[in-house]
């Protein structure tokens, strides 16, 4: 078992993150069903479309609380390094793709994908730290 899973902060993280991710998935399905493509912005459509964004923000808050509450300082440092690598990765992808969009006719990268790209960056960070520490 990974030592992080034994930290009580990780249990609290799961209790926050899992409900937020369930709400996120449900809100995405709900918004896709209720809002037709290219619908005009109205209080109703904005209200529905905000739900997954707020759930996503709750997921980010749960991840931030994990970093604050972790008791093992070395494991916390590893998680912070991963988050920094993920941030650099997401910013790099966004900046590079944004410039490609500016100067060429590549497809537009939807902004809501930045968070999933950042999460992918966490995996990149995990691999980078493992390889470096070998």
């Amino acid at each position: 078992m990974h030592p992080l899973f034994r930290d009580p902060a990780y249990n609290r993280y799961l209790k926050r993150f899992i409900p937020a991710s369930v709400v996120y998935a449900g809100a995405i399905v709900l918004a896709s069903m209720l809002i037709p493509d290219h619908a005009k912005a109205s209080p109703l459509t904005i209200g529905i479309a905000l739900l997954p964004g707020l759930a996503c923000t709750a997921m980010i808050w749960a991840m931030a609380r994990l970093l604050v509450e972790m008791e093992d300082e070395y494991l916390r440092l590893i998680e912070i390094k991963k988050a920094l690598i993920a941030t650099g990765f997401a910013l790099g992808v966004a900046a590079t793709w944004g410039l490609l969009e500016l100067y060429t006719d590549v497809p537009k990268l939807p902004v809501f994908l930045i968070f999933p790209i950042w999460c992918f960056g966490l995996a990149v960070g995990q691999i980078w730290i493992k390889v470096r520490d070998k």
Partner: peptide, 22 residues
């Protein structure tokens, strides 16, 4: 110490310098 085995290993091998409280 109330820390993970990975923390002890990282300190022993010089990969990580502990905080003053630790």
């Amino acid at each position: 110490l109330g820390v993970s085995r990975q923390s002890v290993n990282a300190i022993e091998t010089g990969k990580y310098d502990p905080s003053l409280p630790l």
